[in-house]
Write a protein that binds this DNA or RNA. Structure first.
Length: 305
DNA sequence: CGTTCCTCCTGCTAGC
DNA sequence: TGCTAGCAGGAGGAAC
């Protein structure tokens, strides 16, 4: 369940069902699930044993458990869901899912944590925690990642729902770049958490075409796009996230229902909720953009594609 | 250096 | 009915 609201729903599930428990065993099936863990799947599983889960944390679409292992400083079990990853809290004797790649058992004999991933773009890694490079900004309230951030999250920018997010600085950055606004929204090193659904929804709400150049938008217009991105993700979180099918579920297997509130994404050919013009879908960055051709006029000039 | 493109997977669906 | 092309919520790393 891949964008910020869906990942946050999962994080909350982990906070409720996994934090505070002691790991008794972990099993990783196949090498691919741990391909980002340099020392391999057996090392990862071994080092989790007897670890105490201190926290469930998130930045953008990256999720991690802070684990106090016996022999080391706290480590981060980094979990990225990719396109189709799920974390499920289930009884150990529940039927095994077809694409089950990892299980974590706990010393209390309560339910186990499972990582299920159809397309295997997601995965697990156990890494060091480092100080948050975005903490202690000149006027921010600092990081709410009190344990720091995992090494693989070093290059990920703060997301719009965390205190370290600095929108004025981001607006200045975008104003100086020659790139399409949608490409910038999807760049997790600039602002994290936004994926294809919420990028299209934010641009529809802001009435900005996905191909508009960031440098050609005014600073207030850039601010509006970012405000809408934050707002639409906040609203989606309030609805439990967006799910069109059972692939995108919380740790209890339940779907969110923000799909009912979408105005652009997945609505090709349907009338725009503002003006009635059919929503258009076109290829962009090996995926799709959905927009209203009337409310979100295509940029003109040499850079328009 | 910043920016753009390709690729890693499985499964479902629309269209022939 | 059966086949297959196309598409799906992501992102690292190569290539320019």
């Amino acid at each position: 369940m891949p964008e910020l609201p869906e990942v946050e729903v999962v994080r909350r599930g982990l906070a409720a069902h996994v934090v505070g428990r002691r790991i008794s065993a972990a099993t990783l099936t196949g090498a691919r699930v741990a391909r980002r863990h340099d020392a391999g799947p057996f090392d990862l599983a071994d080092r989790l044993v007897d670890g105490q889960v201190l926290a469930a944390d998130r930045r953008g679409k990256y999720l991690w458990l802070v684990v106090q292992t016996p022999a080391e400083d706290p480590q981060a079990l980094v979990i990225h869901l990719g396109m189709s990853g799920q974390l499920l809290v289930e009884a150990a004797d529940a039927p095994r899912e077809k694409h089950l790649h990892a299980t974590v058992d706990f010393a209390d004999d309560g339910p186990q944590l499972r990582f299920v991933d159809q397309r295997t773009f997601g995965g697990l890694a156990l890494t060091e925690l480092i100080p948050d490079p975005y903490a202690e900004g000149h006027h921010s309230h600092g990081s709410h990642h009190s344990h720091g951030v995992p090494v693989p999250v070093r290059h990920i920018a703060p997301d719009p729902l965390e205190p370290a997010y600095d929108q004025p600085a981001l607006v200045r950055l975008l104003k100086g770049r020659h790139t399409a606004i949608k490409r910038a929204l999807l760049d997790q090193g600039k602002v994290s958490g936004v994926g294809n659904i919420y990028a299209d929804e934010a641009l529809w709400r802001a009435r900005v075409h996905p191909l508009r150049e960031t440098s050609a938008l005014t600073k207030p217009a850039l601010g509006r796009v970012l405000d809408h991105a934050a707002e639409v993700m906040r609203e989606a979180l309030g609805q439990g996230g967006t799910s069109f099918d059972s692939l995108y579920v919380n740790v209890n297997g339940a779907s969110g229902y923000f799909d009912r509130s979408l105005h652009a994404y997945g609505r090709e050919g349907e009338p725009c909720d503002r003006c009635g013009t059919p929503i258009r879908r076109e290829a962009f960055m090996n995926r799709s953009s959905h927009y209203c051709p009337r409310c979100q006029p295509r940029p003109r000039g040499p850079r328009a594609r």
